[in-house]
């Protein structure tokens, strides 16, 4: 990697200030994406702002009808937290499928959401559950947050501090892993909650998205059969050596069925 300055602020205010002062600085949480990119010299930040010393970014709490998770909470914590396991068990199960043990003990939910890798798991859950992304300056609905491949609605220097998931009546998740990277080839998160039915899809396209035809079908009839014959158009889906767009379109239907079955 190239040389960079390293800062480890102990407060959110200090972190935001460091980021404001240096437009080429980058925040780092678990580093599960950023560190390999730095090692491959694909990225040349002037400074890394290590967020691991900021207490305000930690913690999982129930606030009314929502679970609020700090940005620096690790996948392992999401997977094993009793409050999450009780309130949104599908989210805990999803977290348990991310990467491997080492990744789950380093990678964070905030890092994953802010990075918005098309094949990451969480964005589909955030969309399906109607989550709210909380930054240092505003609250952004998930529908507005995930803008495109590796792109979110956050401004330069804006920092994600947490995410609030409304507690659903039921939710489920299913995915097929890429045989090589083990990232999601296509995953579908389904939820039925106070805001209605949500179906979030990851891995299939350049950015996670909601499958609204399936949402309508499930709102009318919550069962795997309701989505079994809904075809995702292949036109805008990803195609690579592991999966054609047509294959991913098929997986949207198959994983949606399995996610509904998983939700019960």
């Amino acid at each position: 990697m190239y040389d960079f300055a390293y800062h480890k602020p102990s407060s959110l205010a200090d972190a935001v200030k460091l980021l404001a002062e240096d437009p080429d600085a980058k925040p780092i949480s678990g580093g599960m994406t950023l560190l390999p990119a730095l090692k491959h010299r694909l990225n040349m930040p002037t400074a890394l702002i290590d967020l691991s010393g900021i207490a305000e970014l930690r913690g999982i709490k129930r606030e009314g009808d929502a679970i609020v998770i700090g940005a620096m909470v690790k996948h392992f914590e999401v997977a094993t937290d009793p409050q999450i396991m009780a309130a949104i068990p599908a989210l805990a199960r999803m977290a348990a499928t991310i990467g491997d043990t080492q990744v789950r003990n380093r990678g964070t939910i905030g890092g994953s959401l802010a990075n918005n890798d098309p094949a990451a798991d969480y964005p589909a859950a955030a969309l399906a559950l109607g989550a709210t992304l909380i930054t240092d300056r505003r609250q952004i609905p998930a529908d507005d947050f995930f803008v495109g491949m590796f792109t979110t609605a956050m401004e330069p220097g804006e920092l994600l501090i947490g995410v609030s998931f409304p507690i659903p009546e039921k939710a489920g998740y299913a995915k097929l892993r890429n045989p090589a990277s083990r990232y999601s080839m296509t995953g579908v998160f389904v939820a039925k909650g106070p805001k209605g039915v949500g179906v979030g899809v990851n891995g299939a396209a350049s950015c996670a998205f909601r499958q609204k035809e399936m949402e309508a079908a499930l709102a009318a009839n919550w069962s795997p059969e309701a989505v079994a014959n809904i075809r995702q158009p292949a036109n805008d889906l990803n195609s690579d050596i592991h999966g054609s767009a047509e294959y991913r379109a098929n997986l949207v239907t198959v994983m949606a069925k399995r996610a509904v079955a998983d939700a019960g």
């Binding site: 080839m185 075809r231 999966g243 098929n250 198959v254």
Partner: peptide, 15 residues
């Protein structure tokens, strides 16, 4: 998986 699904898909004419 892609190859096997494609074979089944082609033979079946349905996903």
């Amino acid at each position: 998986p892609l190859k096997i699904w494609s074979i089944i898909h082609a033979k079946d004419g349905a996903a």
